[in-house]
Design a protein around this nucleic acid. Structure first.
Lengths: 213, 213
DNA sequence: TAGATTGTTAATCGATTAACAATC
DNA sequence: TAGATTGTTAATCGATTAACAATC
Protein backbone atom coordinates (compact mmCIF):
# COMPACT_ATOMS: atom_id res chain seq x y z
CA UNK A 1 0.00 0.00 0.00
CA UNK A 2 1.45 3.35 -1.05
CA UNK A 3 2.27 6.00 1.50
CA UNK A 4 1.08 9.55 1.76
CA UNK A 5 -1.71 9.53 -0.73
CA UNK A 6 -3.24 12.98 -0.62
CA UNK A 7 -6.84 13.45 0.37
CA UNK A 8 -7.74 14.60 -3.13
CA UNK A 9 -6.07 11.61 -4.74
CA UNK A 10 -7.89 9.19 -2.45
CA UNK A 11 -11.20 10.81 -3.23
CA UNK A 12 -10.53 10.65 -6.94
CA UNK A 13 -9.56 6.99 -6.68
CA UNK A 14 -12.81 6.23 -4.90
CA UNK A 15 -14.73 8.01 -7.64
CA UNK A 16 -12.84 6.08 -10.33
CA UNK A 17 -13.81 2.96 -8.41
CA UNK A 18 -17.48 3.89 -8.64
CA UNK A 19 -17.14 4.17 -12.40
CA UNK A 20 -15.28 0.87 -12.65
CA UNK A 21 -17.88 -0.97 -10.59
CA UNK A 22 -20.47 0.26 -13.04
CA UNK A 23 -18.40 -0.78 -16.06
CA UNK A 24 -17.73 -4.22 -14.61
CA UNK A 25 -21.43 -4.63 -13.95
CA UNK A 26 -22.09 -3.78 -17.58
CA UNK A 27 -19.39 -6.25 -18.69
CA UNK A 28 -17.29 -3.61 -20.39
CA UNK A 29 -13.66 -4.68 -20.26
CA UNK A 30 -11.78 -1.50 -21.08
CA UNK A 31 -12.07 2.15 -20.22
CA UNK A 32 -10.01 5.13 -21.39
CA UNK A 33 -8.83 8.16 -19.48
CA UNK A 34 -10.90 10.64 -21.50
CA UNK A 35 -14.05 8.65 -20.72
CA UNK A 36 -13.38 8.65 -16.97
CA UNK A 37 -12.40 12.30 -17.12
CA UNK A 38 -15.63 13.22 -18.86
CA UNK A 39 -17.79 11.37 -16.35
CA UNK A 40 -16.03 13.04 -13.44
CA UNK A 41 -15.53 16.35 -15.21
CA UNK A 42 -11.83 16.47 -14.57
CA UNK A 43 -8.72 16.59 -16.75
CA UNK A 44 -7.82 13.43 -18.64
CA UNK A 45 -4.08 13.66 -18.00
CA UNK A 46 -4.93 13.79 -14.32
CA UNK A 47 -6.64 10.44 -14.70
CA UNK A 48 -3.69 8.94 -16.55
CA UNK A 49 -1.28 10.20 -13.94
CA UNK A 50 -3.37 8.78 -11.11
CA UNK A 51 -3.84 5.41 -12.77
CA UNK A 52 -0.17 5.15 -13.67
CA UNK A 53 0.58 5.17 -9.94
CA UNK A 54 -1.40 1.98 -9.53
CA UNK A 55 -1.16 -0.10 -12.65
CA UNK A 56 0.58 -0.72 -15.95
CA UNK A 57 -2.55 -2.06 -17.58
CA UNK A 58 -2.93 1.01 -19.79
CA UNK A 59 -2.63 0.22 -23.49
CA UNK A 60 -2.53 2.68 -26.33
CA UNK A 61 -5.71 2.75 -28.39
CA UNK A 62 -7.63 0.50 -25.95
CA UNK A 63 -7.33 2.18 -22.58
CA UNK A 64 -7.15 0.45 -19.21
CA UNK A 65 -8.36 -2.97 -18.15
CA UNK A 66 -11.37 -2.34 -15.91
CA UNK A 67 -10.77 -5.42 -13.78
CA UNK A 68 -7.11 -4.57 -13.15
CA UNK A 69 -7.60 -0.94 -12.28
CA UNK A 70 -10.53 -1.77 -10.04
CA UNK A 71 -8.58 -4.29 -8.02
CA UNK A 72 -5.52 -2.04 -7.94
CA UNK A 73 -7.63 0.71 -6.36
CA UNK A 74 -9.07 -1.76 -3.90
CA UNK A 75 -5.61 -2.86 -2.90
CA UNK A 76 -4.27 0.68 -2.61
CA UNK A 77 -7.18 1.85 -0.51
CA UNK A 78 -7.15 -1.27 1.64
CA UNK A 79 -10.63 -2.63 1.00
CA UNK A 80 -9.61 -6.08 2.20
CA UNK A 81 -8.14 -4.77 5.43
CA UNK A 82 -11.34 -4.78 7.49
CA UNK A 83 -11.69 -1.98 10.03
CA UNK A 84 -14.23 -2.53 12.82
CA UNK A 85 -16.31 0.35 14.09
CA UNK A 86 -19.15 1.23 16.42
CA UNK A 87 -21.89 3.66 15.57
CA UNK A 88 -22.64 6.04 18.43
CA UNK A 89 -26.18 7.36 18.41
CA UNK A 90 -29.04 5.42 16.82
CA UNK A 91 -31.06 8.06 14.99
CA UNK A 92 -32.02 8.05 11.32
CA UNK A 93 -28.52 8.80 10.08
CA UNK A 94 -27.11 5.99 12.21
CA UNK A 95 -29.72 3.59 10.86
CA UNK A 96 -28.95 4.66 7.32
CA UNK A 97 -25.25 3.97 7.86
CA UNK A 98 -25.94 0.67 9.63
CA UNK A 99 -28.12 -0.51 6.78
CA UNK A 100 -25.58 0.42 4.18
CA UNK A 101 -24.10 -2.98 3.41
CA UNK A 102 -21.72 -1.52 0.92
CA UNK A 103 -19.48 -0.33 3.72
CA UNK A 104 -18.10 -3.81 4.13
CA UNK A 105 -17.04 -3.80 0.49
CA UNK A 106 -14.88 -0.82 1.35
CA UNK A 107 -13.42 -2.43 4.44
CA UNK A 108 -15.64 -0.89 7.10
CA UNK A 109 -17.46 -3.33 9.35
CA UNK A 110 -20.07 -1.92 11.71
CA UNK A 111 -20.23 -4.19 14.74
CA UNK A 112 -22.90 -2.50 16.85
CA UNK A 113 -24.77 0.69 17.63
CA UNK A 114 -25.04 2.55 20.92
CA UNK A 115 -27.67 4.91 22.29
CA UNK A 116 -29.02 6.10 25.61
CA UNK A 117 -32.69 5.80 24.70
CA UNK A 118 -34.13 2.75 26.56
CA UNK A 119 -36.69 2.24 23.78
CA UNK A 120 -33.96 1.56 21.25
CA UNK A 121 -31.84 -0.77 23.37
CA UNK A 122 -31.77 -4.40 22.24
CA UNK A 123 -33.30 -3.59 18.91
CA UNK A 124 -31.45 -4.94 15.89
CA UNK A 125 -30.64 -3.09 12.69
CA UNK A 126 -29.37 -5.07 9.76
CA UNK A 127 -28.11 -7.74 12.15
CA UNK A 128 -26.36 -5.23 14.40
CA UNK A 129 -27.55 -4.81 17.97
CA UNK A 130 -28.22 -1.46 19.64
CA UNK A 131 -26.60 -1.42 23.09
CA UNK A 132 -26.86 1.03 25.91
CA UNK A 133 -24.02 3.50 25.71
CA UNK A 134 -22.75 2.32 29.10
CA UNK A 135 -21.68 -0.96 27.49
CA UNK A 136 -19.40 0.72 24.98
CA UNK A 137 -16.13 0.93 26.91
CA UNK A 138 -16.22 -2.71 27.87
CA UNK A 139 -17.12 -3.90 24.37
CA UNK A 140 -14.53 -1.65 22.75
CA UNK A 141 -11.87 -3.18 24.94
CA UNK A 142 -12.97 -6.77 24.44
CA UNK A 143 -13.40 -6.44 20.68
CA UNK A 144 -10.41 -4.12 20.28
CA UNK A 145 -12.50 -1.53 18.47
CA UNK A 146 -10.80 1.85 18.04
CA UNK A 147 -13.13 3.45 15.49
CA UNK A 148 -16.38 5.20 16.21
CA UNK A 149 -18.90 6.88 13.95
CA UNK A 150 -20.47 9.73 15.85
CA UNK A 151 -24.06 10.56 14.92
CA UNK A 152 -25.47 11.96 18.17
CA UNK A 153 -27.35 15.30 18.34
CA UNK A 154 -25.22 18.44 18.41
CA UNK A 155 -25.81 19.03 22.13
CA UNK A 156 -24.34 15.65 23.03
CA UNK A 157 -21.39 15.78 20.66
CA UNK A 158 -18.48 16.91 22.84
CA UNK A 159 -19.67 14.93 25.82
CA UNK A 160 -19.89 11.80 23.66
CA UNK A 161 -16.45 12.46 22.22
CA UNK A 162 -14.99 12.74 25.73
CA UNK A 163 -16.65 9.48 26.61
CA UNK A 164 -15.31 7.77 23.50
CA UNK A 165 -11.81 8.98 24.24
CA UNK A 166 -12.05 7.59 27.77
CA UNK A 167 -13.19 4.30 26.26
CA UNK A 168 -10.02 4.05 24.21
CA UNK A 169 -11.45 5.08 20.84
CA UNK A 170 -8.70 6.52 18.62
CA UNK A 171 -10.60 7.54 15.50
CA UNK A 172 -13.88 9.40 15.34
CA UNK A 173 -15.78 9.84 12.11
CA UNK A 174 -17.73 12.89 13.13
CA UNK A 175 -21.17 13.44 11.55
CA UNK A 176 -22.15 16.13 14.07
CA UNK A 177 -21.78 19.80 13.14
CA UNK A 178 -19.39 20.33 16.06
CA UNK A 179 -15.64 20.68 16.25
CA UNK A 180 -14.56 18.11 18.81
CA UNK A 181 -11.78 18.72 21.29
CA UNK A 182 -9.78 15.53 21.66
CA UNK A 183 -6.26 14.57 22.74
CA UNK A 184 -3.46 14.62 20.19
CA UNK A 185 -3.45 10.84 19.79
CA UNK A 186 -7.10 10.77 18.76
CA UNK A 187 -8.02 11.59 15.20
CA UNK A 188 -11.24 13.20 14.07
CA UNK A 189 -12.57 13.07 10.54
CA UNK A 190 -15.23 15.76 10.15
CA UNK A 191 -17.87 14.76 7.69
CA UNK A 192 -18.98 18.37 7.22
CA UNK A 193 -22.04 17.76 5.06
CA UNK A 194 -22.79 21.43 5.30
CA UNK A 195 -19.42 22.38 3.85
CA UNK A 196 -20.11 20.25 0.79
CA UNK A 197 -23.52 21.75 0.39
CA UNK A 198 -22.18 25.27 0.71
CA UNK A 199 -19.60 24.68 -1.98
CA UNK A 200 -22.35 23.29 -4.15
CA UNK A 201 -24.49 26.41 -3.72
CA UNK A 202 -21.53 28.78 -4.03
CA UNK A 203 -21.03 27.23 -7.45
CA UNK A 204 -24.65 28.03 -8.22
CA UNK A 205 -24.24 31.62 -7.20
CA UNK A 206 -21.15 31.86 -9.37
CA UNK A 207 -22.92 30.30 -12.32
CA UNK A 208 -25.91 32.57 -11.96
CA UNK A 209 -23.63 35.60 -11.91
CA UNK A 210 -21.85 34.56 -15.06
CA UNK A 211 -25.21 34.01 -16.75
CA UNK A 212 -26.07 37.59 -15.96
CA UNK A 213 -23.09 38.96 -17.87
CA UNK B 1 -20.47 37.81 -1.99
CA UNK B 2 -16.93 37.07 -3.18
CA UNK B 3 -16.25 35.20 -6.35
CA UNK B 4 -14.34 32.01 -6.89
CA UNK B 5 -13.92 30.82 -3.36
CA UNK B 6 -12.10 27.53 -3.60
CA UNK B 7 -13.69 24.37 -2.32
CA UNK B 8 -11.10 24.11 0.44
CA UNK B 9 -11.63 27.68 1.55
CA UNK B 10 -15.38 27.21 1.72
CA UNK B 11 -14.98 24.07 3.77
CA UNK B 12 -12.62 25.81 6.15
CA UNK B 13 -15.02 28.72 6.50
CA UNK B 14 -17.82 26.35 7.39
CA UNK B 15 -15.61 24.72 10.03
CA UNK B 16 -14.67 28.12 11.46
CA UNK B 17 -18.37 28.79 11.61
CA UNK B 18 -18.93 25.67 13.70
CA UNK B 19 -16.35 26.91 16.17
CA UNK B 20 -17.85 30.40 16.25
CA UNK B 21 -21.36 29.08 16.88
CA UNK B 22 -19.97 27.25 19.87
CA UNK B 23 -18.13 30.32 21.16
CA UNK B 24 -21.18 32.51 20.76
CA UNK B 25 -23.25 29.94 22.62
CA UNK B 26 -20.70 30.07 25.44
CA UNK B 27 -20.80 33.89 25.41
CA UNK B 28 -17.13 34.23 24.55
CA UNK B 29 -16.64 37.45 22.59
CA UNK B 30 -13.21 37.04 21.10
CA UNK B 31 -11.22 34.25 19.48
CA UNK B 32 -7.66 34.19 18.18
CA UNK B 33 -6.21 32.51 15.13
CA UNK B 34 -3.99 30.10 17.09
CA UNK B 35 -7.04 28.88 19.03
CA UNK B 36 -9.05 28.19 15.86
CA UNK B 37 -5.99 26.63 14.26
CA UNK B 38 -5.47 24.28 17.17
CA UNK B 39 -9.11 23.14 17.21
CA UNK B 40 -9.02 22.44 13.49
CA UNK B 41 -5.42 21.25 13.45
CA UNK B 42 -4.37 23.60 10.71
CA UNK B 43 -1.83 26.41 10.42
CA UNK B 44 -2.61 29.64 12.25
CA UNK B 45 -1.46 31.94 9.46
CA UNK B 46 -3.90 30.12 7.22
CA UNK B 47 -6.68 31.13 9.57
CA UNK B 48 -5.55 34.74 9.62
CA UNK B 49 -5.35 34.85 5.86
CA UNK B 50 -8.83 33.39 5.48
CA UNK B 51 -10.39 35.70 8.04
CA UNK B 52 -8.69 38.75 6.57
CA UNK B 53 -10.63 38.10 3.38
CA UNK B 54 -13.88 38.58 5.27
CA UNK B 55 -13.40 41.04 8.07
CA UNK B 56 -11.21 43.71 9.64
CA UNK B 57 -12.32 42.85 13.14
CA UNK B 58 -8.93 41.32 14.03
CA UNK B 59 -7.17 43.17 16.82
CA UNK B 60 -3.67 42.57 18.08
CA UNK B 61 -3.56 40.90 21.48
CA UNK B 62 -7.32 40.22 21.56
CA UNK B 63 -8.05 38.33 18.36
CA UNK B 64 -11.23 38.50 16.32
CA UNK B 65 -14.74 39.45 17.34
CA UNK B 66 -16.75 36.23 17.30
CA UNK B 67 -19.99 37.93 16.31
CA UNK B 68 -18.42 39.80 13.40
CA UNK B 69 -16.56 36.89 11.93
CA UNK B 70 -19.56 34.62 12.28
CA UNK B 71 -21.85 36.97 10.43
CA UNK B 72 -19.18 37.69 7.82
CA UNK B 73 -18.95 33.96 7.08
CA UNK B 74 -22.72 33.73 6.90
CA UNK B 75 -22.82 36.57 4.44
CA UNK B 76 -20.01 35.20 2.32
CA UNK B 77 -21.51 31.75 2.14
CA UNK B 78 -25.00 33.07 1.52
CA UNK B 79 -26.87 31.66 4.51
CA UNK B 80 -29.66 34.18 4.10
CA UNK B 81 -30.13 33.39 0.45
CA UNK B 82 -32.54 30.47 0.83
CA UNK B 83 -32.21 27.66 -1.69
CA UNK B 84 -35.21 25.35 -2.04
CA UNK B 85 -34.71 21.64 -2.62
CA UNK B 86 -36.53 18.35 -2.89
CA UNK B 87 -35.29 15.12 -1.38
CA UNK B 88 -35.61 12.20 -3.77
CA UNK B 89 -35.95 8.86 -2.02
CA UNK B 90 -37.42 8.55 1.46
CA UNK B 91 -35.17 6.04 3.21
CA UNK B 92 -33.33 6.51 6.48
CA UNK B 93 -30.79 8.90 5.05
CA UNK B 94 -33.52 11.01 3.52
CA UNK B 95 -35.38 11.11 6.82
CA UNK B 96 -32.20 12.08 8.64
CA UNK B 97 -31.68 14.96 6.21
CA UNK B 98 -35.34 16.00 6.34
CA UNK B 99 -35.24 16.12 10.13
CA UNK B 100 -32.08 18.14 10.21
CA UNK B 101 -33.50 21.57 10.95
CA UNK B 102 -30.09 23.11 10.88
CA UNK B 103 -30.09 23.06 7.11
CA UNK B 104 -32.32 26.11 7.07
CA UNK B 105 -29.73 28.00 9.10
CA UNK B 106 -27.34 27.38 6.25
CA UNK B 107 -29.81 28.46 3.61
CA UNK B 108 -31.13 25.09 2.51
CA UNK B 109 -34.88 24.63 2.69
CA UNK B 110 -36.25 21.16 2.11
CA UNK B 111 -39.75 21.53 0.68
CA UNK B 112 -40.80 17.92 0.22
CA UNK B 113 -39.69 14.34 -0.24
CA UNK B 114 -40.46 11.94 -3.07
CA UNK B 115 -40.56 8.16 -3.23
CA UNK B 116 -42.23 5.41 -5.22
CA UNK B 117 -43.25 3.28 -2.23
CA UNK B 118 -47.05 3.58 -1.79
CA UNK B 119 -46.67 2.95 1.95
CA UNK B 120 -44.64 6.13 2.38
CA UNK B 121 -46.78 8.45 0.27
CA UNK B 122 -48.67 11.14 2.19
CA UNK B 123 -46.63 10.60 5.32
CA UNK B 124 -45.10 13.69 6.83
CA UNK B 125 -41.55 14.10 8.12
CA UNK B 126 -40.74 17.18 10.13
CA UNK B 127 -43.59 19.02 8.44
CA UNK B 128 -42.54 17.95 4.95
CA UNK B 129 -44.83 15.72 2.92
CA UNK B 130 -43.70 12.62 1.04
CA UNK B 131 -45.16 12.66 -2.47
CA UNK B 132 -45.20 10.04 -5.15
CA UNK B 133 -42.28 10.58 -7.48
CA UNK B 134 -44.71 11.15 -10.37
CA UNK B 135 -45.66 14.47 -8.81
CA UNK B 136 -42.13 15.82 -8.87
CA UNK B 137 -41.95 17.39 -12.33
CA UNK B 138 -45.14 19.33 -11.83
CA UNK B 139 -44.21 20.55 -8.36
CA UNK B 140 -40.69 21.47 -9.43
CA UNK B 141 -42.11 23.64 -12.16
CA UNK B 142 -44.76 25.28 -10.00
CA UNK B 143 -42.42 25.94 -7.09
CA UNK B 144 -39.43 26.72 -9.31
CA UNK B 145 -37.28 24.16 -7.54
CA UNK B 146 -34.02 23.35 -9.30
CA UNK B 147 -32.19 21.50 -6.52
CA UNK B 148 -32.57 17.85 -5.64
CA UNK B 149 -30.94 15.72 -2.99
CA UNK B 150 -30.65 12.20 -4.34
CA UNK B 151 -30.82 9.43 -1.74
CA UNK B 152 -32.29 6.53 -3.72
CA UNK B 153 -30.71 3.06 -3.76
CA UNK B 154 -27.75 2.55 -6.07
CA UNK B 155 -29.78 0.59 -8.63
CA UNK B 156 -32.19 3.49 -9.11
CA UNK B 157 -29.57 6.24 -9.21
CA UNK B 158 -29.01 6.90 -12.90
CA UNK B 159 -32.65 6.38 -13.76
CA UNK B 160 -33.65 8.88 -11.06
CA UNK B 161 -31.06 11.35 -12.29
CA UNK B 162 -32.44 11.12 -15.82
CA UNK B 163 -35.89 11.72 -14.45
CA UNK B 164 -34.75 14.72 -12.45
CA UNK B 165 -33.05 16.21 -15.48
CA UNK B 166 -36.24 15.81 -17.49
CA UNK B 167 -38.10 17.57 -14.66
CA UNK B 168 -35.88 20.62 -14.99
CA UNK B 169 -33.63 19.99 -11.98
CA UNK B 170 -30.28 21.72 -12.45
CA UNK B 171 -28.35 20.70 -9.33
CA UNK B 172 -28.16 17.24 -7.82
CA UNK B 173 -26.59 16.63 -4.43
CA UNK B 174 -25.75 13.01 -4.96
CA UNK B 175 -25.68 10.73 -1.93
CA UNK B 176 -25.64 7.54 -4.00
CA UNK B 177 -22.36 5.77 -4.70
CA UNK B 178 -22.84 6.22 -8.43
CA UNK B 179 -21.34 8.59 -10.95
CA UNK B 180 -24.29 10.20 -12.69
CA UNK B 181 -24.35 11.00 -16.38
CA UNK B 182 -26.10 14.31 -16.85
CA UNK B 183 -26.15 17.07 -19.48
CA UNK B 184 -23.56 19.83 -19.28
CA UNK B 185 -26.00 22.36 -17.83
CA UNK B 186 -26.77 20.13 -14.85
CA UNK B 187 -24.37 20.08 -11.93
CA UNK B 188 -23.73 17.13 -9.67
CA UNK B 189 -22.18 17.36 -6.22
CA UNK B 190 -21.00 13.91 -5.18
CA UNK B 191 -21.21 13.43 -1.45
CA UNK B 192 -18.79 10.52 -1.59
CA UNK B 193 -19.03 9.39 2.04
CA UNK B 194 -16.84 6.45 1.16
CA UNK B 195 -14.08 8.72 -0.10
CA UNK B 196 -14.00 10.51 3.22
CA UNK B 197 -13.96 7.28 5.10
CA UNK B 198 -11.15 5.90 2.97
CA UNK B 199 -9.00 8.93 3.58
CA UNK B 200 -9.70 8.53 7.26
CA UNK B 201 -8.53 4.93 7.26
CA UNK B 202 -5.57 5.62 4.97
CA UNK B 203 -4.42 8.02 7.68
CA UNK B 204 -4.73 5.19 10.16
CA UNK B 205 -2.64 2.89 8.05
CA UNK B 206 -0.04 5.62 7.71
CA UNK B 207 -0.03 6.25 11.45
CA UNK B 208 0.27 2.58 12.28
CA UNK B 209 3.23 2.27 9.94
CA UNK B 210 5.04 5.18 11.53
CA UNK B 211 4.40 3.67 14.96
CA UNK B 212 6.17 0.56 13.75
CA UNK B 213 9.34 2.43 12.99
C1' DT C 1 -1.37 4.37 -42.71
C1' DA C 2 -4.28 7.23 -39.70
C1' DG C 3 -6.03 7.85 -35.45
C1' DA C 4 -6.76 6.98 -30.69
C1' DT C 5 -4.64 6.66 -26.63
C1' DT C 6 -1.01 6.31 -23.14
C1' DG C 7 2.94 8.06 -20.53
C1' DT C 8 5.54 11.78 -19.21
C1' DT C 9 7.67 16.22 -19.14
C1' DA C 10 7.45 21.01 -18.50
C1' DA C 11 4.65 24.92 -17.44
C1' DT C 12 1.25 26.80 -14.83
C1' DC C 13 -1.41 27.53 -11.15
C1' DG C 14 -2.86 27.63 -6.49
C1' DA C 15 -2.43 26.55 -1.64
C1' DT C 16 0.24 26.26 2.51
C1' DT C 17 3.77 27.50 5.60
C1' DA C 18 7.39 30.24 7.69
C1' DA C 19 8.89 34.38 9.24
C1' DC C 20 8.61 38.66 11.14
C1' DA C 21 7.51 43.64 11.41
C1' DA C 22 3.72 46.22 13.24
C1' DT C 23 0.47 46.82 16.74
C1' DC C 24 -1.73 47.32 21.09
C1' DT D 1 7.83 47.43 28.92
C1' DA D 2 6.97 42.62 27.54
C1' DG D 3 4.21 39.67 25.26
C1' DA D 4 0.44 38.20 22.46
C1' DT D 5 -1.45 38.66 18.33
C1' DT D 6 -2.49 40.37 13.68
C1' DG D 7 -1.34 41.25 8.86
C1' DT D 8 1.44 40.33 5.14
C1' DT D 9 5.32 39.05 2.39
C1' DA D 10 8.25 35.68 0.57
C1' DA D 11 9.37 30.89 0.25
C1' DT D 12 7.89 26.45 -0.25
C1' DC D 13 5.21 22.97 -1.55
C1' DG D 14 1.96 20.40 -4.13
C1' DA D 15 -1.60 19.87 -7.62
C1' DT D 16 -3.34 20.65 -12.17
C1' DT D 17 -3.04 21.40 -16.95
C1' DA D 18 -1.03 21.58 -21.51
C1' DA D 19 1.54 19.55 -24.85
C1' DC D 20 3.36 16.06 -27.40
C1' DA D 21 6.33 12.04 -28.48
C1' DA D 22 5.68 7.17 -28.34
C1' DT D 23 2.82 3.40 -29.17
C1' DC D 24 -0.25 0.12 -31.20
Amino acid sequence: MQQNLSEKLIKRLSLYHHVLVDYEYKHIEHISSPVIAELLRIDDSQVRKDLKLLTDSGKCKVGYLVKDVKSAIEKTLGFKDVKDAFIVGAGNLALALAKYDNFLTYGLRILALFDNDPLKINMTVNGKEIFHISKLANLAMRLKVENAILTVPRAAAQESADFLVSAGIKFIWNFTPCILKVPADVQVCNENLIGNFLYFTAEQVKNKKSEDL
